[in-house]
């Protein structure tokens, strides 16, 4: 119950104070350039990677990117830049 309460307060604060939500709530920030680039900040680690699929761990749930010819251009602890032909971006909430 207490966690729910904290979440509510944070959501309320971001709404009222006009703060960017990714900063306040530890959400991933995803930037895409057409179909060819996807830039994901605030991830929690690599789960699976192949040339057709990228699965990232987030704070809540996972992010699944599907496409073709994937190459990770850069990978840093909390950022990843993926190149290829991106078909789908999916959030998986367990």
């Amino acid at each position: 119950m207490a966690i729910r309460w904290g979440l509510k307060v944070r959501r309320w604060m971001t709404e009222k104070m006009d703060l960017p939500q990714d900063v306040m709530m530890d959400l991933p920030r995803i930037t895409m350039i057409g179909q060819i680039h996807i830039y994901i900040e605030n991830h929690r680690g690599l789960l699976a990677f192949s040339d057709r699929e990228l699965r990232l761990l987030l704070k809540q749930g996972q992010l699944l990117v599907k496409g073709k010819g994937f190459v990770i251009k850069t990978i840093l602890p909390e950022e990843i830049l993926l190149e290829g032909k991106i078909d789908q971006v999916m959030f998986i909430n367990d």
Partner: peptide
């Protein structure tokens, strides 16, 4: 990556 090693052009 968490230990500060820079890697790039990762491909399967």
């Amino acid at each position: 990556t968490r230990n500060g090693i820079v890697i790039w052009a990762v491909r399967r």
